[in-house]
Design a protein around this nucleic acid. Structure first.
Lengths: 330, 330
DNA sequence: ATGAAAGCGCTAACAA
DNA sequence: TTGTTAGCGCTTTCAT
């Protein structure tokens, strides 16, 4: 029996290769007897898939350890990997001296140990992604990512719609002065949230008021200035903003939501869970993780078929705990 | 420039191979320019390490998703993988139809995609481990595992000593009738706990009293029988036993620890955290995970060097919240 | 100091 | 229906 026959049997090509049933059985028996297992490396050298999906985080600590933001994505990734019958390769070796993780380090790109990869994390540096895309390496980013000159695949929460909905929700409660509070630094997810806010305002016919501020600058004095505009509701980028605002409101003897409604568009960035409960948009992290893997496998299965490869997953609406109708005009 | 020269440069063998500095620079420049990256599959085909560590769980869901028992081990594994500069391959594809995960499935052992593996989970079936050991595959089990005829490597909490210490601690409080309560089914960790208990009793010169019972059989009636022996303290295998005992004690109007001291040797098996706080031995799960990876890498680095490969990691002592001196004899 | 060549285990096209 | 063979990309020994 030649290697070719064994190969055919192993790969279930016995039919198409017209291997006699008797031979097939003989081969299978020997395989079992000798405890033969195919060598993945050799197989992959021949251009076949390894059924391994890479997972790369740009942040320093791998999401396994964390009860935060990234952990839920990873859970979804893992769930779908099971469904798709793929193994998961976590690139834990890529730690740079600065704690960040790089894709390309001195020409030894570990990514090729996997068939494709899911990428996670907030990176300002898009050049690696551009490079990767140019190299034709199949990957899906978690969260929208715009890379100039490259049309990369991503799956992310639909921040824009969530944000727009938040405006509509507040308007339905009677608010006409709704401000947006968020970080000034540019980043895709933030841009989406702000854009959604503006769209919501336009639809409702109310003036947009974006108050961009760093969290540490959000003082009672800043708060006074914000209130001077006559706002009755705030849409904040993250719950951490809401927490600061609660402090400021307390200092000014205002109560939430009686005097001021607050809706948060995102929960913790990291660190401990916040103390107060906020009306907060729910991020579909598990689903995003699952869809990312699903998309990646589809891309791997049929590389050249054009398809939707930028997917926005709907967020769940906020509850009404910190939303109320505006107080009567003073 | 031939491939041999490039290979030498890539693998930092420029010195030993006496490649001229000028040539080396030329090669490095080209590598950068062309964006060349070595093919891991080809390299591994030549027998070189991949710097990939496998992680296999026998339980159905991968520990990533869970806030339980296994998750902490995985955290330690991940931490050490970063330190050792290895990637982690999670075998999420091995899911059997019954939800359990098998090492050997129809001759396609995925384990060989990694250089070695860390194995996790409670398996009654040791034949796979025997097989793996025979095949010469390098692996480390999390938790002591005895496989007949094979001398396998493992790293686990030192249950025996923890258990023995618990006895000593209770004896120091004046207890002379201390019972051990645990599951009757055999399993390495359980055996260790019970053995430690017996050792502790022997040292203290008190009679051992092992009350093996399934959790669902732990009723108030059973509790009455246990109390009839005159015990003043209980060492329980898991907090879930302690919880049941608290219920029984409540039903009999006994208070813990005034009327009965309780020490738990392990916390949750799975499921939600328990409500009551118990004096419970702390399991060094993170450390165990780290040490397992550390040992595995050592084994990989020097396969034939004999070394300590069965490591017990000390547990942390229980606090005194449910320990008191025994009540005066009735 | 550099090049030539064998061979790792596998798959697939082709020959018998 | 089965066997032969080239070659995937790399490392390493030996020759130059």
């Amino acid at each position: 029996v030649s290697r070719a026959v064994v190969s055919a049997v192993i790969n279930d090509r016995a039919r198409t290769q017209r291997i006699s049933a008797e031979t097939e059985q003989r081969v299978r028996a020997s395989v079992r007897q000798l405890g033969y297992v195919v060598n993945l490396a050799a197989r992959s050298l021949k251009g076949k898939r390894k059924r391994i999906l890479g997972v790369h985080t740009f942040e320093s600590v791998f999401p396994i350890a964390r009860r935060d933001f990234y952990h839920e994505f990873l859970t979804g990734i893992e769930e779908q990997a099971v469904v798709e019958g793929h193994d998961l390769l976590l690139f834990t070796s890529a730690e740079g001296s600065d704690g960040r993780r790089k894709l390309y380090s001195d020409g030894s790109n570990r990514l090729n140990a996997a068939d494709g990869a899911v990428l996670l994390g907030v990176t300002e540096d898009h050049s690696d992604l551009f490079q990767l895309s140019q190299d034709g390496y199949p990957f899906v980013y978690i969260g929208r990512r715009d890379v100039h000159g490259a049309d990369i695949a991503w799956v992310g929460p639909d921040y824009a719609t969530a944000s727009q909905d938040a405006v509509a929700r507040l308007v339905a409660h009677g608010h006409r002065r709704i401000a947006y509070v968020g970080y000034p630094q540019h980043q895709e997810a933030r841009a989406d949230r702000e854009t959604g806010y503006r769209t919501g305002c336009r639809i409702a016919g109310i003036p947009p008021l974006a108050l961009l501020v760093n969290l540490e600058d959000l003082s009672p004095e800043w708060f006074d200035l914000a209130l001077a505009t006559g706002v009755t509701a705030l849409i904040v980028e993250l719950e951490s903003f809401a927490n600061r605002i609660a402090e400021c409101a307390g200092a000014r003897h205002l109560s939430i939501p009686a005097d001021l409604s607050v809706v948060a568009l995102g929960d913790i960035e990291s660190g401990p869970a916040t103390d107060r409960k906020w009306s907060c948009v729910g991020l579909p992290r598990r689903t995003v993780g699952r869809q990312a893997v699903s998309l990646l496998v589809t891309m791997l299965d049929a590389p050249d078929v054009p398809r939707e490869h930028q997917i926005r997953v709907p967020c769940t609406p906020p509850d009404e705990s910190t939303i109320a109708s505006p107080a009567a005009a003073p």
